[in-house]
């Protein structure tokens, strides 16, 4: 008898707590959000420094100028789309182009809203260090890469030349490219961008040759000058089938995306995020402060904000 009472009471409680019946888990925020009563914005951070720079500046302005509390979560791009759609994060500030996700979430489900350009144009490519390119100018054409495979060998790549890739989260066609262009190379994943950078600087210090997947804007170019290797030119749609790609990466205007509910009801924060737009130089400046001078993102943001008042004032108006 008593057991049944408990069971009934328990299920009633569960029902009231869960709001009777259906529970849509795509509408759940993070349990750590809005923790202390103030308005909170959840930003997703991607693992590369440029994305950290965006978030650092946005976070600084939200906290110090608009009085928000900011939580950041490290999520890679693709999962970030899903998290954004579910409202677990409010904004994705730097997207390198995911047409499939855009179709699903922005056009079909309408849970995500575009928030305009970031102002930075991204480009992915294959790079060799400039000191090596100067000695061997013909290496900058992909057709000659096989000639140099021997020099790009490392313990990890075994008998072939090494093409170094970074984080698994990056947009990459490299494996297909190596195969389709019939290159005598092995794609070696460093596992993270930081690992890749460490490795590149190590090589640069010893003036060793290396071939790497890299992208701009990137602060490392200031430290290790690199020259792009020309791949077959990019044409619209040439990368449609991931298996058969045999062309270069496109130039992508990087995009911002907001959760639809946040975009509508996010008040000043949402308005600010829509207006946030800066240049490649600005982003690199902050990135360098964080990555090279080992400043905390907050310090770096403060330094940039203090010296670029006119730029950010426009975002807040």
């Amino acid at each position: 008898m008593r057991r049944r009472t408990t069971a009934v009471a328990g299920s009633l409680l569960l029902l009231t707590v869960t709001g009777c019946g259906a529970a849509d888990m795509t509408k759940q925020a993070s349990p750590f959000a809005n923790a202390q009563g103030s308005k909170t914005v959840n930003l997703s951070v991607q693992s590369w420094v440029g994305a950290q720079a965006n978030v650092a500046v946005v976070q600084y302005l939200l906290e110090h100028e608009l009085g928000y509390r900011v939580d950041t979560v490290q999520v890679d791009e693709v999962p970030a789309w899903d998290a954004l759609s579910q409202g677990r994060v409010d904004a994705l500030l730097e997207d390198w182009g995911h047409p499939e996700q855009e179709q699903r979430y922005v056009k079909d489900k309408k849970t995500i809203t575009r928030a305009g350009d970031l102002g930075v144009t991204g480009h992915i490519g294959w790079y060799v260090p400039t000191y090596f390119a100067k000695q061997h100018p013909d290496v900058t054409n992909w057709k000659n890469l096989n000639k140099y495979a021997e020099q790009f060998r490392t313990p990890e790549s075994g008998g072939k030349g090494q093409l170094m890739d970074g984080s698994p989260s990056y947009v990459t066609n490299d494996k297909a490219l190596v195969q389709n262009l019939k290159l005598d190379y092995q794609v070696v994943f460093a596992g993270s961008e930081a690992a890749q950078i460490t490795q590149m600087r190590q090589f640069a210090k010893e003036k060793k040759p290396f071939l790497t997947y890299w992208y701009s804007p990137q602060w490392l170019f200031k430290k290790v000058p690199m020259t792009e290797v020309k791949l077959p030119a990019y044409k619209e749609g040439c990368d449609a089938d991931p298996e058969k790609v045999a062309c270069a990466y496109p130039h992508t205007p990087l995009q911002k995306y907001l959760n639809t509910d946040f975009a509508k009801n996010g008040g000043k924060a949402a308005a600010f995020l829509k207006k946030f737009k800066w240049s490649t130089e600005d982003q690199n400046e902050v990135s360098l402060l964080i990555a090279d001078q080992k400043m905390t993102p907050e310090e770096a943001a403060k330094k940039w904000v203090d010296s670029h008042e006119s730029t950010w004032k426009a975002w807040l108006s």
């Binding site: 259906a22 529970a23 759940q28």
Partner: peptide, 23 residues
């Protein structure tokens, strides 16, 4: 992903589990 916000399995089971955890 497409049915997470509409299919009853998610609405009436996983949704509640997830809700309970978050709460």
């Amino acid at each position: 992903i497409d049915n997470r916000d509409s299919h009853p399995l998610f609405l009436y089971f996983f949704g509640h589990v997830s809700n309970a955890v978050v709460l």
